[in-house]
């Protein structure tokens, strides 16, 4: 489902003497449907970078990044948009939304985007917010005013409300209490059961061991760090 082949990535800082910073080289990764792969490696090794390359957020310098049947490294913007809408979900560490939009709408949006009718989308959004223990009185407010933990849960709700066949999870259990952490882990397990291919970053070792099927150390892709 997710097939990364020999990807390299470097940043060229044109405004700082055109310094070229290689950050990834020879990265390869395959994730099958129903499988969860955890990325490991020290901070700065390139876990998030690899994830962003898969999401199309960073431009791969070379190599292939195939998700479904689309090579993200070479796709047109509209193809990537369609991929993100239908196939590839991403739960980042930060919630980025239009201010003022009510939480319920924020969470329902991925469903509306794939053509669910409004009522059905709202119902599903309500279900998942309830599961994640966001009090109903907050649903009509914009999440921009919420606490960090609440924002994180809204972000997770938004990421899991539509059943993406492929998912990228960046620290999904960070800053959550035990009860919500448990909910998120079961959401991940459910996603795996329905066949989602998942790439995750989990600092929480216990969580990582519970949901991931194998680990890939990205340090091996880091230029200058590779063993």
């Amino acid at each position: 489902m997710i097939n990364v082949k020999n990807v390299s990535k470097s940043f060229t800082l044109h405004n700082q003497g055109s310094a070229v910073i290689p950050v990834m080289d020879g990265a390869s990764l395959q994730v099958s449907p129903g499988e969860c792969v955890a990325l490991t490696g020290a901070s700065g090794a390139g876990k998030s970078t690899l994830m962003r390359v898969i999401y199309g957020n960073y431009l791969a310098a070379s190599g292939q990044v195939v998700v479904g049947d689309l090579d993200v490294a070479r796709a047109e913007p509209r193809e990537i948009i369609a991929l993100r809408r239908d196939t590839l979900g991403y739960v980042s560490q930060f919630l980025r939304v239009v201010p003022r939009v009510p939480t319920l709408d924020v969470v329902a949006e991925p469903l509306l985007a794939v053509g669910h009718d409004r009522q059905a989308a709202m119902d599903k959004a309500a279900d998942i917010l309830e599961r994640l223990n966001i009090p109903e009185r907050l649903w009509s407010l914009s999440p921009t005013t919420f606490s960090g933990g609440e924002q994180q849960r809204v972000n997770i709700a938004r990421g899991f409300v539509h059943h993406y066949p492929a998912m990228l999870l960046d620290e999904p259990t960070a800053s959550l209490d035990a009860r919500n952490r448990e909910t998120v882990l079961s959401l991940i397990e459910e996603a795996k059961q329905r066949g989602a291919a998942i790439v995750g970053i989990f600092h929480d070792a216990e969580a990582r061991e519970r949901v991931s099927d194998r680990e890939v150390d990205v340090s091996q892709f880091t230029p200058g760090l590779a063993a």
Binding site: F11, N15, R52, N57, L59, I80
Partner: peptide
């Protein structure tokens, strides 16, 4: 390019 890609990983000086 894709909006977030251009903003997060700009290529041109």
């Amino acid at each position: 390019g894709l909006t977030d890609q251009v903003l997060d990983d700009p290529q041109h000086a």
